[in-house]
């Protein structure tokens, strides 16, 4: 536990010690607002945050891997990984420490979109439950993306490569469930396989939470996803930390 907290604290502070945090937050908040209003928030004449949450997966595909890419690639490149793993810290503690620090950082970003909720509340009478579940769903989705990013950051010492691989993997996970992809795949894939692909995608589970239903199956999807990708990260790190 000590190892976990040490890494967690260091990592979370690390975001704010470099310009990473500020660049990330400014760009993220700008686009989160911009996309919402651009796609007809006022025209829809509905006091809800559907437009906001709808765009998040797309935004996360780029933003979350950008947060995750430095997690391990930087440690390995600068050699500080040798420092980290000669302290009494296990690989699991270090991975979880870094993961939760990055997750908390993204959640901070999400929380900072609160003026959006205030705007909606001022304009009409939104269903607050829906907004809260929307945020919960977003946080879990961010965690899923982050776990994917973690693995690719451990795979490559080069942050750019880690970023591109993570964006690609995340995009596949998102777009697999988009209606357009589904329609296309329906042309030649059997129904069972199609349903399986749909269930593998972030989109379905995120939308379901967004509708205000926090189902065990949706939450467990994200939790299993995170656990799986993080376990893979542990495996890769044990293999490659010294190379």
């Amino acid at each position: 536990m000590t190892g976990f907290w040490a890494v967690f604290k260091r990592e979370f502070k690390g975001y704010f010690a470099t310009p990473v945090a500020y660049v990330f937050l400014v760009i993220f908040l700008f686009f989160a607002g911009y996309l919402t209003f651009k796609q007809g928030f006022f025209e829809a004449r509905q006091a809800d945050m559907r437009m906001f949450f709808m765009n998040l997966p797309l935004l996360f595909v780029f933003m979350v891997p950008a947060t995750a890419m430095r997690l391990w690639a930087e440690e390995r490149k600068s050699g500080s990984i040798e420092l980290l793993f000669t302290l009494p810290i296990t690989v699991t503690q270090a991975i979880l420490g870094k993961f939760f620090a990055a997750w908390l950082f993204i959640i901070v970003g999400l929380v900072m979109t609160f003026p959006m909720a205030l705007t909606v509340a001022w304009l009409g009478e939104p269903d607050m439950g829906l907004i809260i579940t929307g945020y919960i769903g977003s946080a879990f989705m961010a965690g899923g993306f982050l776990a994917v990013g973690c693995l690719f950051s451990a795979v490559s010492k080069n942050q750019v490569i880690a970023f591109i691989l993570a964006v690609t993997a995340c995009a596949v996970l998102v777009f697999a469930g988009m209606p357009t992809t589904m329609n296309y795949l329906a042309g030649f894939l059997p129904a069972g396989l199609l349903a399986a692909i749909e269930q593998m995608s972030f989109q379905v589970h995120f939308e379901s939470i967004q509708r205000g239903v926090v189902k065990f199956s949706d939450l467990s999807y994200f939790i299993i996803l995170m656990a799986g990708w993080l376990a893979a990260t542990a495996f890769i790190l044990n293999e490659r930390k010294a190379s």
């Binding site: 000590t2 190892g3 907290w5 040490a6 890494v7 604290k9 260091r10 502070k13 690390g14 010690a17 470099t18 600068s78 050699g79 500080s80 990984i81 040798e82 420092l83 000669t86 302290l87 009494p88 810290i89």
Partner: peptide, 27 residues
């Protein structure tokens, strides 16, 4: 043990105080 790695890798964005406190945390 106390281990000093070759080339003395450190976390460059931290201050000396921050780094030593991190090591204390971990230990």
């Amino acid at each position: 043990i106390g281990y000093l790695a070759e080339n003395a890798p450190l976390y460059n964005e931290m201050t000396v105080a921050g780094f030593l406190n991190f090591v204390c945390d971990a230990r």
